[in-house]
Amino acid sequence: MAKKISPDLVGETFSPMPASWTKKDIQLYALGVGCQPDTELAFVYEQKGPKVLPTYGVIPGMMALGGMMGKVEMNLANLLHGEQAIVQHRPIPPQAKVECIGKITEVWDKGKAAVLGVEGLVQDKDGPICTTHATIFLKGAGGFGGDRGPSSEGINVAPEREPDHVVTYPTRPEQAALYRLSGDPNPIHIDPNFAMMAGYKKPFLHGLCTYGFVGRAILHTLCGSDPARFGSFEARFADQVYPGDDIVTKLWVVEPGVAIVQAETQKGNVVLSKSKCTFKPE
């Protein structure tokens, strides 16, 4: 039976959820977040591996979010994906049978809304592969008497200088239609009528698709395209990206193996903010 939102939910765990993927799933995800055969062949061609983008871990990791939705009373129409993070413990294998163990990590009362955090540990018979963390913002679900939570003021702020790296990737008109085949069928990203009913002018890109585009920029720019050098990536979703927009990733290396990340569209609107990644320097 679903439980009401309250601070008592913190620490609630879910039964391990089985998942699996094949090389075809890995390649489809890579294409869904913009990989190009001419420059990223190893990520889309089975005869070259395929290598696995580290952000693929959000796909099995998000099963934890689904588990929480079944445990907690919430109106899915009022749900917004607030933040996403992944920690890679070892390179993701190109095919695997795994389980995802989910846990509620935080419950905050923002007054007119509630914020819930959920962690997903993805592991196979050889141990942990990655840990994901997501927060969701539930409009109209606050006022239950909980703590407001910590302030995000000053977290992962870009230095007041030009970025060390700027990477621009175009998205395609069919980008959201392609990405949804990796497991996020929300009609708001493909159905114009549904998007307009939800208050948007047209379908927009999945936040996790944008996250994958930026993850590619991090991988190729800071990790030498080697997934084994990728450590972690945390981000806050700040605005929509529409299919056909450019995603401009700006990276400030602030110490060895740590960079502040910000993503914008070609129009200058920030779409990922308060973001940071870690990596193994050369």
Results as ranks from 00 to 15, higher is better:
residue 82 G to F: 03
residue 88 Q to W: 12
residue 77 A to F: 10
residue 85 A to T: 05
residue 57 G to L: 08
residue 94 P to A: 10
residue 75 N to Y: 01
residue 57 G to C: 12
residue 64 A to R: 04
residue 83 E to H: 14
residue 84 Q to M: 07
residue 91 P to M: 03
residue 65 L to H: 15
residue 90 R to T: 04
residue 72 V to H: 09
residue 94 P to I: 01
residue 93 P to C: 08
residue 79 L to H: 04
residue 86 I to W: 14
residue 64 A to T: 00
residue 100 C to A: 03
residue 65 L to I: 11
residue 93 P to N: 04
residue 67 G to Q: 12
residue 69 M to Q: 14
residue 80 L to N: 06
residue 73 E to M: 12
residue 81 H to P: 05
residue 64 A to K: 03
residue 74 M to P: 06
residue 95 Q to G: 09
residue 95 Q to W: 06
residue 92 I to W: 02
residue 78 N to D: 11
residue 98 V to D: 00
residue 59 I to A: 03
residue 96 A to Y: 00
residue 97 K to M: 10
residue 83 E to V: 13
residue 96 A to E: 03
residue 61 G to M: 06
residue 77 A to T: 13
residue 95 Q to H: 09
residue 72 V to D: 02
residue 78 N to H: 13
residue 69 M to G: 13
residue 81 H to W: 04
residue 92 I to N: 04
residue 57 G to E: 04
residue 64 A to E: 00
residue 73 E to C: 07
residue 92 I to A: 04
residue 56 Y to H: 14
residue 73 E to V: 11
residue 96 A to L: 01
residue 58 V to M: 12
residue 57 G to N: 15
residue 70 G to H: 05
residue 93 P to K: 11
residue 80 L to K: 11
residue 61 G to Q: 00
residue 82 G to R: 11
residue 83 E to D: 15
residue 83 E to T: 15
residue 60 P to T: 02
residue 75 N to F: 00
residue 60 P to Y: 00
residue 95 Q to F: 11
residue 68 M to K: 06
residue 69 M to T: 14
residue 57 G to R: 10
residue 64 A to V: 01
residue 60 P to G: 00
